[in-house]
């Protein structure tokens, strides 16, 4: 007997909200990617708890896919960040305003 599922869901929701705050409020491209990682991780926690709640293995399988998506997203995102940093010399998203006039 662990805790009720709703407590796990609430915990994952708070963690997701922290990820949203990190992705939206921080003025730094790397911190924005870290926020996305936190969000994916909290979604995985909710999935595993749901797999335990309904005794179905599908939830754990989807967490495996979330891991793969997170690895893909972070490697491509960091490659993009390095490319953008070499072109503009800054990680502040507000400096990417070449198209603005």
């Amino acid at each position: 007997m662990i805790v009720p599922y709703s407590h796990v869901l609430l915990f994952a929701g708070i963690l997701f909200a922290m990820g949203v705050v990190c992705a939206v409020a921080r003025r730094n491209l790397i911190m924005m990617l870290i926020g996305v990682e936190i969000m994916l991780n909290s979604a995985g926690l909710a999935f595993v708890a749901a797999a335990l709640r309904w005794q179905q293995l599908e939830g754990q399988v989807f967490v495996l896919f979330i891991f793969a998506i997170a690895a893909a997203e972070v490697s491509l995102g960091l490659a993009l960040i390095v490319y953008a940093y070499r072109r503009t010399g800054s990680l502040d998203p507000e400096t990417y305003n070449i198209l603005k006039w």
């Binding site: 007997m1 805790v3 599922y5 796990v8 709640r53 293995l57």
Partner: peptide, 15 residues
């Protein structure tokens, strides 16, 4: 939401 989760285990082989 008040029913607690039961403990379980998915062995790596089964998974």
């Amino acid at each position: 939401s008040q029913t607690p989760l039961m403990t379980g285990l998915a062995r790596p082989r089964v998974f």
